[in-house]
């Protein structure tokens, strides 16, 4: 019963997210509304972590697998992609690295500047 209950809550919140996505005219997907709803439900103690924990972490664990069908779909897009694939690839690779570097470094520098040494060590920063 525990799994059924946990799955029920997760699907219920996904459904609520879907409804919000249809009602609110913004380009915000159901899953993002769902994350906000799930977080609020936990934060305001409507549900407890143990009400969703096992099933939730199971779904998170299998998440990479869930992207396979969408990624295999690139095959279908190949006809449209072919004329522009090279510049698109270069731009994608470079910008992904640059964004990671800049956002990560800025966060890290700010943490080092503001936090006492003990916390830094716990967080994995050794300076």
């Amino acid at each position: 019963m525990k799994t059924v209950r946990q799955f029920l809550i997760i699907i219920g919140i996904s459904f609520a997210g879907e409804i919000l996505n249809r009602v609110i005219p913004l380009p915000v997907p159901a899953s993002v509304y769902g994350v906000l709803l799930m977080f609020s439900a936990l934060y305001f103690r409507v549900i407890r972590v143990r009400d969703v924990r096992e099933t939730g972490y199971f779904l998170i664990e299998i998440m990479p697998i869930l992207f396979i069908p969408a990624a295999v779909g690139l095959l279908e897009a190949w006809a449209v992609l072919r004329p522009v694939w090279l510049p698109f690839c270069i731009i994608t690779v470079i910008s992904t690295f640059v964004v990671m570097g800049i956002s990560g470094r800025i966060t890290q520098e700010l943490i080092i500047r503001r936090r006492p040494a003990l916390l830094r060590k716990k967080d994995g920063c050794r300076s």
Binding site: I11, V35, L42, R53, I60, A70
Partner: peptide, 17 residues
């Protein structure tokens, strides 16, 4: 698998919390 993507994304709120 596609179908499970939304519920899985929703669950990202758990570690966040």
């Amino acid at each position: 698998l596609n179908w499970l993507l939304t519920p899985a994304t929703v669950c990202l709120a758990i570690p966040l919390y």
